[in-house]
Amino acid sequence: MKYELGACLLALRLSEARMTAEQLAQLLQYKPERLVDYIDNKRVMPLKTAIAIADTLGCRERDLYELKPY
């Protein structure tokens, strides 16, 4: 089955982890603005970034976006 990416779920995952974007950015040594761009759906995170974020938050990479089958 094929999927397209829907909305970014990073804000939800951060809330579940009781963490802010700023805290995550500091842990991963990213600029907070970069994470906010993902949260606001202004940018799609590269796979390498999704792996790092998912590993830090204790979720799967596919849990970071809505997946819409087509």
Rank of each mutant, 00 (worst) to 15 (best):
residue 17 A to N: 01
residue 51 I to T: 03
residue 57 L to T: 03
residue 35 L to H: 02
residue 17 A to Q: 00
residue 11 A to V: 03
residue 61 E to W: 12
residue 2 K to C: 01
residue 9 L to C: 10
residue 36 V to K: 09
residue 28 L to R: 01
residue 15 S to V: 05
residue 48 K to M: 10
residue 37 D to I: 03
residue 10 L to E: 01
residue 51 I to E: 08
residue 50 A to F: 11
residue 43 R to Q: 06
residue 8 C to N: 06
residue 30 Y to H: 15
residue 4 E to N: 07
residue 58 G to T: 09
residue 1 M to T: 14
residue 11 A to W: 09
residue 48 K to N: 12
residue 28 L to N: 00
residue 12 L to D: 03
residue 21 A to G: 04
residue 3 Y to F: 15
residue 19 M to G: 04
residue 16 E to F: 12
residue 18 R to C: 01
residue 56 T to F: 06
residue 55 D to H: 15
residue 17 A to F: 05
residue 15 S to D: 05
residue 38 Y to G: 00
residue 60 R to D: 06
residue 56 T to Q: 07
residue 25 A to V: 09
residue 59 C to W: 07
residue 60 R to W: 10
residue 31 K to H: 15
residue 61 E to Q: 10
residue 45 M to P: 02
residue 4 E to L: 07
residue 31 K to T: 07
residue 41 N to K: 13
residue 13 R to N: 04
residue 12 L to N: 05
residue 11 A to Q: 07
residue 7 A to H: 14
residue 58 G to E: 07
residue 27 L to N: 11
residue 39 I to Y: 06
residue 44 V to T: 08
residue 40 D to G: 12
residue 40 D to T: 12
residue 56 T to W: 09
residue 40 D to E: 15
residue 19 M to S: 09
residue 48 K to V: 14
residue 46 P to Y: 11
residue 29 Q to K: 12
residue 27 L to C: 11
residue 28 L to V: 02
residue 28 L to Y: 08
residue 46 P to S: 03
residue 4 E to C: 06
residue 44 V to W: 05
residue 61 E to A: 14
residue 31 K to F: 11
residue 9 L to G: 00
residue 13 R to G: 01
residue 54 A to V: 04
residue 40 D to K: 15
residue 4 E to P: 02
residue 63 D to Q: 13
residue 44 V to R: 09
residue 16 E to P: 04
residue 55 D to Y: 13
residue 60 R to F: 13
residue 62 R to G: 05
residue 61 E to K: 12
residue 11 A to Y: 06
residue 9 L to Y: 08
residue 57 L to N: 00
residue 45 M to D: 01
residue 30 Y to N: 08
residue 22 E to F: 14
residue 12 L to C: 00
residue 36 V to S: 07
residue 15 S to H: 12
residue 6 G to Y: 13
residue 14 L to C: 03
residue 31 K to S: 12
residue 6 G to K: 12
residue 43 R to G: 01
residue 49 T to E: 00
residue 12 L to E: 02
residue 29 Q to E: 05
residue 54 A to C: 07
residue 43 R to P: 00
residue 53 I to R: 05
residue 33 E to I: 08
residue 30 Y to D: 05
residue 44 V to M: 07
residue 59 C to I: 06
residue 4 E to S: 09
residue 8 C to W: 02
